[in-house]
């Protein structure tokens, strides 16, 4: 127990330290921009990892929740002039409720049927966002007002870097605590075997719903803030490909590892920028890296690397 607590704190502190010193090594705003995008993806992935990695439930529709949050902020704060914080909260509450309502029937489904159902929900959301152009600006998306809080406008990469850094830190801290709580242990039981967990008296359904709602809300909040940061939101941010990308980040970094999800999000946000040097070979290289990583490190990047470290030093 002491060890787990220790490891958890070390990881969190290490991540905090990296976030704190990283800007010193980033030569210009473009790098900060990539770091910020990686941060937003990481926030969503940490939530999604709770669902996939710990509750063992796949979702191919989380970009839909991200999109609803983003458009809630865009429409409410822009078109209707709400204070951005209120718009963000409204989006999060709406997404939470939506996730809660669909969670019960959907989480009854198993494996690929669940994947299909979440994929369907995500696609329906993105079609609505794309089609209701009167409200959402259609396929070209809409511009979003800057984020204002207490009369201060959040503006520029420097400022947003710290906002996203803080958000990521908070989300990771929350997840680590959740995983280590009694509920977290119940969650891991769910992943292991649902029937077994129920036999020993764990209310798996309730936990699954809770995690589903929580991960959806994480995505929504990240979406809202992203919309304000980017100043532009398009339906592509809510579509099937984005959902797949998010799941890929989680699995790539390492399922059932909070820091793995963060690493996956960072690496896969960085990768397309790096691969521009391969010009016409970009896609081939990206596909090959995905395949090779998953074939040779089926547990994902971070857990596999961590396992390389001799067990003796781990204690």
């Amino acid at each position: 127990m002491q060890n787990i607590l220790h490891g958890r704190l070390t990881g969190l502190l290490a991540m905090g330290a990296i976030i704190a010193v990283l800007p010193a090594f980033l030569p210009n705003n473009f790098y900060l921009d990539v770091a910020i995008l990686a941060g937003f993806n990481a926030v969503v992935c940490v939530g999604l990892n709770l669902l996939i990695g710990y509750a063992g439930q796949i979702s191919l529709g989380h970009a839909g929740f991200f999109g609803i949050g983003a458009y809630a902020s865009g429409v409410l704060a822009g078109t209707y002039g709400w204070p951005p914080v209120l718009a963000l909260l409204a989006g999060a509450v709406f997404v939470g409720l939506l996730a809660f309502v669909v969670a019960k029937p959907i989480l009854r489904l198993k494996g690929h049927y669940l994947a299909m159902a979440t994929l369907g929900i995500g696609i329906i959301v993105s079609i609505v966002l794309r089609t209701e152009s009167g409200l959402t600006g259609g396929p070209d998306g809409m511009t979003v007002e800057p984020f204002r809080i207490f009369g201060v406008e959040l503006y520029g990469e420097r400022v947003w870097y710290w906002v996203v850094g803080a958000l990521l830190f908070a989300v990771v801290w929350l997840s680590l605590n959740l995983i280590d709580s009694p509920m977290g242990r119940a969650l891991r039981a769910v992943h292991g075997s649902e029937v077994a967990a129920e036999v020993v008296g764990v209310d798996t359904a309730r936990f699954k719903v809770l995690v589903f709602v929580l991960s959806a809300v994480f995505a929504s909040v990240a979406g809202s803030l992203f919309a304000h940061y980017a100043g532009l939101i398009t339906p592509a941010k809510a579509d099937f490909f984005k959902s797949i990308e998010l799941v890929t980040m989680v699995v790539f970094g390492g399922m059932a590892s909070t820091f793995g999800a963060v690493v996956g999000a960072v690496v896969l946000t960085l990768l397309p920028q790096l691969l521009t040097m391969f010009q016409d070979y970009q896609q081939i290289v990206l596909g090959a890296i995905l395949m090779a990583t998953m074939v040779f490190m089926p547990k994902g990047l971070l857990p596999t690397l961590a396992a390389l470290i001799p067990a003796r030093r781990r204690a």
Binding site: I58, A115, I244, V247, L286, G287, I289, L290, M291
Partner: peptide, 17 residues
């Protein structure tokens, strides 16, 4: 299962490239 899905997605990106 999810890992296998990602592998086939990687394969599809590779093949398109």
């Amino acid at each position: 299962t999810v890992t296998l899905i990602i592998i086939t997605i990687g394969a599809s990106i590779f093949l398109r490239g």
